[in-house]
Write a protein that binds this DNA or RNA. Sequence first.
DNA 1: ATTATTTGACCTTT
DNA 2: AAAGGTCAAATAAT
Length: 336
Amino acid sequence: MDNLFSNSELENLIREISQGREMTTQLQNHLNVSSSSSRDKCDYLLHKILYSYDQALSIIRNNRRASDETLTPSILMATNQDSPQSLVSDESDQDFKDLASKKRKAVAKWTKKVKVSPERGIEGQLDDGFYWRKYGQKDILGAKHPRGYYRCSHRHAQGCLATKQVQKSDEDPITYEITYRRKHTCNTRVGQTNVNNPPISLPGPQNIDPTPLPQNSQEPSFNIQTSLGFVTQDLGSHTENPFINPEINNIFSDCEDILGNYSFNILSPSTFGSNIFPNPTHVTNYDCFDNLESQLSPFVAGISSTTTPPTVSTHSSFGFSEFGSGFSFNNQGYFW
DNA sequence: ATTATTTGACCTTT
DNA sequence: AAAGGTCAAATAAT
């Protein structure tokens, strides 16, 4: 398993993020003694910041353990603190067997856990910036809560095959496990450029257990929580995708989902940003994409040779303007 | 009227 | 065979 980072680099990375997290905690404690009208907002942001740090650390730790067992105890201690909403890889051996045997069509799959604060409205916190349409719900054996099935609302309009499953955690009623399959090939994403996106209604009252609560929030652009994604597997064969540009687009979209938001919005650019993300070749080498790497490399090579690398600003989505030209965010088209 | 969700049936995978 | 995943008609929401 090739790492983009050396052991020492990884340790430094972990140390930096840990320090950032610690300082954020201190800030939080400091804010506890003062009171202002923006207190709630600060708490909210801090919650998300800490959450993002936890996810980043979890990703790196996971990586590190998978590729190298020489992690020093001190680093583990420093990063293994309470992370109740830590991301957990749900890689299954079966999935790898499938990949090896080619019995089943390989489909990209990755899971993230979202911990919500009920008082803030869970739908907003579960928002991942995409439009989803529910197409099913199933009781799952051994699970307390049903699993909701969603597909991209632009399935027909744009041929986007992305789907996700949302399931309330058995143990923790405010944690939701969201499993994504396939990349979005649509270019419509909530809150990227249009703050007037119409909200999509939430599941109706018939939904006794409100497990799946996807859709929009009022704060879609500050979507730190989407950074908590962790690639647990990607068996995707991208070759059947009829969309060329969107395919590349989604590579960056995924990168953004997994790392982009925290690296741009949270981590100091002087510390991390410029070293980690702006160069797309780094993205493909990042260990979160272990299973993607071979498939993404050709595309990235194409990008490097034929287009200008995406310019990344602090809040912009990754290279969206590069591939989404001509699409109007004001025109949603029809959903299906 | 149109669009989204619910839910049992049906299909696929294990 | 059974569990997971999707379809689609019925229903609800707007």
